[in-house]
């Protein structure tokens, strides 16, 4: 354990962790745009700088480990001045369009500018002016809003392992890019959207079918309904519609999803959904009430059971339904109809 002093108060923290980690655990808020605890420290945005007694310059807390006896100031005047300067520089080269930006309300740059009182960028000069990459069916990349934190690039390589994007050129011309800058559609991109999930600003944004503001949606944590990995995710709900999906940072997926889990949700509110029971009469489906449907099924069960016995029945339960539903289904066949002819598509 290391004994350290933060903002004049003494703490005991685990050895070998970074100052940022220590502060996070102690509930001391430090701003950062490029940090993600799942990725290697990167120290690109410089916003997490702190003052360490005995050090001449400010240090990035995300890449500096605690040492016994360290005295740290996280919100000194010097630190605040430095953060304001960084935010000013970033915002001076950023479209000032928060009113219409889709990210508004969950944009880290917006939040920090608000917190540190940056009303406008004071540096006057050339601004980035790139075309948008709209080639991916599920998300748009706007390089003009990109603050070059590199999270998308690092998630794509370190976590997703796809390496579809990288940083090209240097200095003012640095840009997140695909090979030969030909756009996401021609790259190795697999549309997982894990880059979109970590973008702190409005540079990588899902293409929305329904317009919504961050504060208008409810987030409901649930389990993905596609493959057997069982990724945890949030359904974003506006009114009676699911309008988006975001990954949850918990087991087993720890903040990652694939293209189906992340973007394959439009079936939920699709107009083709069955909305009422149907009974086939003379070869044609007719809408029916639940009572009519239940009555018909029960009368057929009784009739066929009377004529042929319970083993003339078979049920296909479902690998797509819940445990509780599967339990009831087999119980119905075994206890109420009287046969073990119950199976599902485990083999298919």
């Amino acid at each position: 354990m290391a004994n350290i002093i933060i903002n004049g108060k003494g703490y005991q923290v685990e050895d070998g962790i970074t100052i940022l980690e220590a502060c996070n655990r102690l509930g001391i808020d430090i701003p950062t745009l490029c940090h993600d605890e799942r990725l290697e420290p990167y120290a690109a945005c410089r916003l997490c700088v702190v003052e360490i007694k005995g050090k001449g310059k400010l240090e990035t807390s995300c890449s500096t480990k605690v040492r016994d006896g360290m005295e740290i100031e996280t919100h000194s005047e010097r630190v605040i001045r430095a953060r304001k300067e960084i935010l000013d520089l970033l915002f001076s080269n950023h479209p000032n369009d928060c009113l219409t930006c889709e990210k508004s309300g969950e944009c880290k740059l917006q939040d920090y500018c608000y917190e540190y009182g940056i009303v406008e960028g004071t540096y006057i000069g050339e601004k980035k002016n790139y075309p948008l990459d709209e080639s991916n069916p599920f998300y748009t990349f706007d390089p003009n809003k990109c603050i070059l934190c590199g999270k998308c690039v690092r998630v794509c390589s370190e976590l997703q392992g796809t390496n579809a994007i990288g940083l090209k050129d240097r200095g003012f011309d640095t840009k997140v890019s695909t090979p030969f800058d030909m756009g996401l559609a021609t790259s190795k991109c697999v549309s997982c959207g894990n880059c979109v999930a970590v973008c702190p600003v409005g540079a990588l944004m899902p293409k929305k079918r329904e317009r919504y503001r961050a504060w208008e949606v409810r987030r409901v944590k649930t389990t993905c309904s596609y493959c057997g990995v069982g990724c945890q995710m949030y359904l974003l709900v506006k009114g009676d519609k699911v309008v988006g999906v975001e990954p949850a940072k918990s087991r087993p997926n720890n903040g990652l999803l694939c293209v189906k889990g992340r973007f394959g949700y439009n079936f939920i509110n699709h107009p083709d959904r069955l909305k009422t029971p149907l009974i086939k009469r003379n070869g044609k489906f007719e809408e029916a009430t639940w009572e009519e449907a239940y009555d018909l099924i029960v009368s057929k069960i009784n009739e066929i059971k009377g004529k042929y016995g319970p083993d003339a029945f078979a049920g296909l339960t479902s690998a797509r339904c819940t445990n509780e539903e599967n339990y009831l289904f087999q119980k119905m066949f075994r206890a109420l109809i009287g046969t073990n002819n119950v199976d599902h598509c485990a083999r298919l």
């Binding site: 069960i301 042929y308 078979a314």
Partner: peptide, 9 residues
């Protein structure tokens, strides 16, 4: 087999 009930398949 005379009667089949298929749920979600």
């Amino acid at each position: 087999i005379k009667f089949i009930y298929i749920m979600g398949e």
